[in-house]
Design a protein around this nucleic acid. Structure first.
Lengths: 199, 199
DNA sequence: CCTTGAAAACCGACCGGTTGGTTTGGTAAT
DNA sequence: ATTACCAAACCAACCGGTCGGTTTTCAAGG
């Protein structure tokens, strides 16, 4: 094993365990000591790779959470009929969610709800990701309009914003209730809403 | 000033300052010491009224957060036309929200997102409140159906669930973005959705 | 009206443990 | 010899919570 890849492995290990802890307990309540115990590495190793807990949190967000979530919607967004493409993917995503994922909620939104009011760095990163998702949705809706699959009079930006908010909200209340049925219910309602946007 | 009411005042002061801190920083990151400093009271006083930080958190949730939020929707729910009643109240609520409220989000949902995965006591209290809200909405929709103001074929439970989720989601992304316009956008989309449920 | 006594309310020093972070020292690859 | 990497000891600050003691309150007894 090459030394540089070994070092990279340790960094990755710290990152992944930190992600687990932060997803379960939140950023602030996550203990550096717990991460070290679970990883079997030392404090020196961690602070070699990450200068502070905050930068570790940023790295977890960008290299784990965003990397896992960001490209999940792309297949549906290229469909010339975005309503059916999105509906199909939505049902898939809900079906694929494990009970653990229902219990823990959306990693990106979790960080947002915890950290947005108290750390601007987190807030900007989270906001950028949400906006990116929304922009992609809006572009898909615009293509749907051009293809004649959606009403031309609807405000695509409004629909995209509402869609993102509703998904995050649905994940949130399902997390509170620890009940995936709430997710399915909201998904069906959201699909019904989208279907109402056809010409 | 009566002694029992003076004591009650101190309890209330601790409760309100704890609520502020917990709303801003979350439950876990809130320091007992900070609450004492801000209140000017002593540790003995706090632990006289509340046996632990956890029970203080429960009390904040029930006596401050729930008390402030719970009865906010009642006027709209008695309207025989729930769609117009709820739409009207929704616009009012959004307009009345201060920038501070946009920045801090929904107290109940904040606690839920932070504490649901790690404390069952919080989870149950929050879930009970969400269910209560949803049940009231559903009852209003049923009355709307009976009065001929809503389609009879719609699933009122689904609509109520989706409504709650969307509101919480909208508050959440507006908090991330620190932008009340997102709230207004989602409110209008939600009203459009409700209008589509008329016969 | 005054005294007494017990309970309620409150205070703040103190406790063990944990926090994020630093320092120092050594090892292995280049 | 230099650089990258990591381990372990260490640090001051802070955490929630406890505890012995003090003050305040208020009813009962004289």
């Amino acid at each position: 094993m090459n030394a540089v890849t070994l070092s990279e492995d340790n960094r990755r290990k710290l990152l992944e365990i930190a992600a687990e802890e932060m997803l379960e307990k939140g950023f602030q309540a996550t203990s550096i000591g717990d991460i070290l115990t679970k990883s079997g590495l030392s404090k020196g190793a961690l602070y070699h790779h990450f200068p502070s807990k905050l930068t570790l949190g940023y790295a977890v967000f960008e290299e784990i959470f965003v990397a896992d979530c960001a490209h999940r919607w792309e297949p549906a967004l290229s469909d010339p009929d975005p309503i059916s493409g999105i509906s199909k993917l939505l049902r898939e995503q809900v079906a694929e969610m494990t009970d653990e994922m229902v219990r823990l909620g959306c990693p990106i939104n979790n960080f947002g709800q915890e950290m947005s009011p108290i750390d601007e760095g987190f807030r900007q990163r989270i906001n950028r990701e949400i906006n990116h998702w929304r922009d992609e949705l809006e572009a898909a809706f615009k293509r749907g309009q051009a293809a004649g699959n959606m009403k031309t009079e609807i405000d695509t930006r409004q629909v995209a914003t509402f869609f993102v908010a509703s998904i995050e909200g649905a994940i949130g209340i399902a997390k509170n209730a620890q009940d995936r049925a709430l997710l399915e219910t909201c998904a069906e309602a959201l699909i019904g809403y989208l279907e109402g946007l056809r010409p």
